[in-house]
Amino acid sequence: MIKDKIKIVYPNLFDNELLNEFEELGLLKRFHQNDIIIDIDENINGIPILLSGAIKIMREDFDHGELLLYFLERGNTCSLTIDCCLENKQSKIRAVAETDGELVMLPSVKMDEWLAKYKSWRKFILNSYNNRLDEMLETIDNIAFNTMSDRLKKYLLDIASINKSKFINKTHQEIAYELNTSRVVISRLLKALEINGFLILNRNEIRIAEF
């Protein structure tokens, strides 16, 4: 069952022998929106591969606020989690379900063995690192060079894309928390974006006009 689900997401990538190991050792896990999948300072015992849904990866700052780093979507894994597995370190991120979904958790104790044994696993891990590095660089550029208004627009478009809907059901406070700013700032910027025609503010709902 597990290997069939992974083959749908990744056709022709993994060796049959490796897929059989996934089937034997993997654990299917369903999650719901806002579930904490991995928490900060948690010991990492498994490597998640996302089969459906979306997960947001958050980083805690020195003042115990949080910043959204990137989203994981179908077929992704978290390279920061892989790094913790390889180095036997505690998690430095919080993974929170953005939507309902399903993942398979693979045992971290098999990481070194699979890296040495399976070319397809090495390719998967390296591609995952490269993809997450690109996303991290994009996040850094976004914070360093873009205004908060630009960051907010990108965030809203990302959420709309993930949910495949122009309607966003998040409070101003939730958005502020994920962008590590204040609710007052977000409310002011949302109003400005509405005036510019980018979105429409409804009660407890934001509609992206340009999506």
Rank of each mutant, 00 (worst) to 15 (best):
R183F: 03
A54L: 09
K166D: 14
L27C: 04
A95P: 09
E178L: 02
Y155I: 06
A144D: 15
L103D: 08
I206M: 14
I55D: 12
V104C: 10
K29Q: 10
I140L: 15
R203F: 04
Y10D: 04
K123V: 14
H64T: 06
I55V: 15
K123H: 07
L27E: 11
T77L: 04
A116G: 09
K92L: 09
E66W: 05
G75V: 05
Y177E: 05
F124R: 03
N196E: 14
Y177S: 00
F71Y: 13
N34G: 03
L69W: 03
I208N: 10
P107S: 14
K3Q: 13
H172G: 13
C84H: 04
F22K: 06
L86P: 00
E87F: 06
E210F: 12
L157E: 14
T99Q: 14
M148T: 13
L67K: 06
K5I: 04
F31I: 02
L28M: 01
K110C: 13
L137E: 15
Y118D: 03
W121L: 01
D141S: 15
L67D: 00
V184T: 02
K110T: 07
L126R: 00
I8G: 01
I57E: 03
A209C: 04
G46I: 06
G65A: 10
C85D: 07
F31D: 07
I57R: 06
K29D: 00
K117I: 05
I49S: 06
K119V: 11
K92T: 14
C84K: 03
K153M: 08
E138S: 12
M105T: 14
I93M: 08
T147K: 05
G65C: 08
M58K: 14
W114H: 08
C85M: 08
M1Q: 14
K110H: 13
T139C: 12
T81W: 02
I38G: 05
I82G: 00
N204M: 10
S149E: 15
L28K: 00
I40D: 01
G75K: 03
V184W: 00
N204A: 13
Y129R: 04
L13G: 00
K166L: 10
